[in-house]
Design a protein around this nucleic acid. Structure first.
Lengths: 118, 118
DNA sequence: TAAATCAATCGTAATATTACATTATAACAA
DNA sequence: TTGTTATAATGTAATATTACGATTGATTTA
């Protein structure tokens, strides 16, 4: 993928003009930027253990769609999957979850309630 | 907008099958889900005051693009703009910022480091 | 071996997002 | 009134995302 037009930049996020940190925050935020992914993360936490395809039963989404969201969450790194045939068990990746905590925490705490136009 | 195909649901987020809270978290996360918006929010915080179109100078993005990101941030509610002709000053909306803090905080703290596949 | 199960992948269809040039608007200054 | 300045809105082009049916592959069970 990513065979895009080199003449214009339309529709393409210009990652190179932002800092590493800004791009990472944006990526971590994407894990939470779709209600289905929020629901998946909440289910994984509530179960305190790996869940597999019952995510499909809980959510009113097709198996292919759930799988696609899981793939995105894995790409970001916030969840990990363990193959346990014929199932695959998913759970939160504690290291990346901690990273998200720091990243959002740092960002959110940097605002000290001082706005000019209150 | 939103004149989409009623037969299929392709490409359309099925907001109705998720809770109010899940949809709101997802929406708030969108404020941080693009590096340009992260950069804009960081600039607004660093200045401790409203900034106008110098955002365009700071970021290597066209004015129209910055304006579009500001519009999205305003839609979410996390920033507010005060018209001060011919400028518009933007700043963080403290109420919504606090909402984001609670929402992400609640979500992030709900995971207690217990994963089955560590 | 054959059937069943589960999840990933592929293909496709549609909307959403990102980016920018251009145009419009609104206020002030000359 | 006319010009200047700053911002918003519009139009357009391209990629990204979301969703799902169908297929594939891997493994277990009968």
């Amino acid at each position: 993928m990513n065979y895009y037009c080199y003449v214009c930049n339309m529709g393409v996020t210009k990652t190179e003009i932002f800092t590493e940190q800004q791009n990472r925050v944006a990526d971590l935020a994407k894990a939470f930027a779709h209600p289905a992914r929020v629901a998946i993360l909440q289910l994984l936490i509530a179960r305190k253990a790996c869940v597999c395809g019952d995510l499909v039963d809980e959510l009113e989404l097709a198996q292919a769609t759930v799988s696609q969201h899981l793939k995105e969450l894995k790409r970001i790194g916030i969840i990990q999957g363990e193959i346990n045939p014929p199932r695959v068990c998913y759970c939160i990746n504690p290291v990346v979850w901690q990273e998200a905590k720091s990243a959002f925490g740092g960002m959110l705490d940097s605002f000290a309630d001082i706005s000019c136009c209150n």
